[in-house]
């Protein structure tokens, strides 16, 4: 199998890289040399598995490699999707500032769908109580100031599906 060291291709994932992701997306083997163990599964050496992994990370195909916490199990039982109607002229600047708050796990701009959906800024906030989520949302509110015309907090009441599986093996 060729291992052409391609430059950072954004959209096309080679078959081996795809297999590598499929083999690891539920977690790395917790052994002394996880790369060798993964490499063995897909028929490449540990060094090559590691080199490919490093490249996928450098390319941004992998957002991160980490010990991914389960916030719910840690005690963060309240997950509030806070949504804000922010002046389009200022949403980028204020979105970045919101994203920098230490308790915001992700922050995105999305389209409005008027009149049903006036909100263009989404910030996910986690808390051990509703009060905690609300006081954090209040800090976002203060930051947005008069650029914000309205907001809501959508609490999750049930997780009906959650899977880290993103890629299926090509057949």
């Amino acid at each position: 199998m060729s291992t052409s060291a391609s430059t950072s291709e954004s959209m096309t994932l080679g078959n081996l890289d795809r297999e590598l992701i499929v083999a690891t997306q539920q977690g790395l083997p917790l052994v002394s040399d996880p790369w060798a163990a993964v490499g063995e599964q897909i028929g490449i050496s540990g060094d090559e598995a590691l080199a490919r992994f490093q490249r996928l990370q450098a390319n941004g195909v992998l957002r991160r490699v980490a010990a991914v916490p389960n916030h719910y199990r840690l005690g963060y039982h309240f997950n509030g999707m806070t949504v804000w109607d922010v002046d389009d002229e200022r949403v980028r600047e204020l979105g970045r500032a919101t994203g920098e708050l230490p308790f915001v796990s992700h922050c995105y701009r999305r389209p409005r769908h008027l009149p049903l959906w006036p909100y263009n800024l989404f910030a996910m906030v986690h808390g051990t109580s509703r009060d905690e989520v609300e006081s954090k949302a209040e800090r976002i509110h203060e930051l947005l100031g008069d650029a914000c015309r309205g907001h809501q907090i959508l609490y999750s009441s049930a997780i009906l599906k959650k899977t880290g599986l993103r890629l299926q093996r090509k057949r």
Partner: peptide, 8 residues
């Protein structure tokens, strides 16, 4: 922790 590994 839900896993030790990549976030795609």
């Amino acid at each position: 922790i839900s896993r030790v590994g990549p976030v795609f």
